[in-house]
């Protein structure tokens, strides 16, 4: 196997990427940026799968990444539709505005 970047580094990279995405989701109020945060988190998971596949020389990691890509595409289409609906109803992109279902 060709000498490469150590797996730990790659996993730490994925974790940092995931944390950044999560922070984006939690901190940003603009729903478009929240969706982008979700994309970042999904890609962090994808990195983790690819790294794991490379580590054990299995193709499954890359297969999972393709799945995640597909799912992300579907998620974005649904998510953008919801964003449009939100904007249509509330005339804003602030996610906190849609909090009518509080207990």
């Amino acid at each position: 196997m060709i000498a490469s970047v150590p797996m730990e580094h790659c996993l730490i990279f994925a974790a940092v990427l995931f944390a950044l995405g999560l922070a984006g989701v939690i901190v940003r109020r603009n729903i478009v940026f929240m969706l982008m945060g979700v994309e970042v988190m999904l890609n962090a998971v994808g990195v983790a799968f690819v790294v794991a596949g490379a580590r054990w020389g299995q193709v499954d990691g890359q297969v999972m990444f393709i799945f995640i890509l597909t799912m992300a595409a579907a998620e974005v289409s649904v998510g953008l539709a919801l964003v449009l609906q939100l904007y249509h109803r509330f005339r804003t992109l602030d996610a906190d505005a849609a909090s009518r279902m509080r207990g």
Binding site: S99, R100, G103
Partner: peptide, 18 residues
């Protein structure tokens, strides 16, 4: 008490899950 946690704020839920 529990109904107070249902804020309707989606970011709050995301935080909870995390």
């Amino acid at each position: 008490l529990l109904s107070k946690t249902q804020t309707g704020n989606i970011r709050w839920y995301a935080m909870g899950i995390a």
